[in-house]
Design a protein around this nucleic acid. Structure first.
Length: 118
DNA sequence: AGGGTGACGATCA
DNA sequence: ATGATCGCCACCC
């Protein structure tokens, strides 16, 4: 029996799971993560999750436009880690057109799989 | 219980 | 292009 508290569908785990889906060598943004998780207004919360939850590929999450949102040394470390994964920077930003991970959209489910069943 | 806060995002000067 | 401001919203104290 589920206990009296429902912590299962928590925002935190939902967003954390979404973050984990970003593959190595790819990046995503706070807004995109929030949206993919189903909470488009919670970009800020994504950042909180990254701080709170350990073991996430935190370096793959960037601000809008592919900017690094961190400051100081942490920003340098993030850039270093990303470049080590093969993500290349153009100036201070990552070219999202190339490196942004596309999340499967809920609304159009299995557009590609659909062909397989055909 | 209430208000300040932020690894954001979009807009304006 | 950079910097300031506002809106957002769950978290944290």
């Amino acid at each position: 029996m589920p206990s009296r508290k429902e912590e299962q569908p928590s925002l935190l785990s939902t967003i954390a799971n979404t973050i984990r889906k970003v593959p190595r060598g790819r990046v995503s943004t706070y807004g995109a993560i929030a949206k993919a998780a189903g909470y488009p207004r919670n970009a800020r919360y994504v950042a909180l999750v990254l701080r709170r939850v350990a073991g996430l590929p935190w370096q793959r999450i960037l601000g809008s436009g592919g900017r690094i949102a961190l400051r100081g040394e942490a920003a340098l470390e993030q850039r270093f880690l990303l470049e080590a994964e093969g993500v290349r920077f153009r100036g201070r930003t990552v070219d999202l057109a190339i490196f942004e991970h596309k999340f499967p959209s809920k609304t159009r489910r299995a557009a590609t799989k659909r062909q397989a069943s055909c």
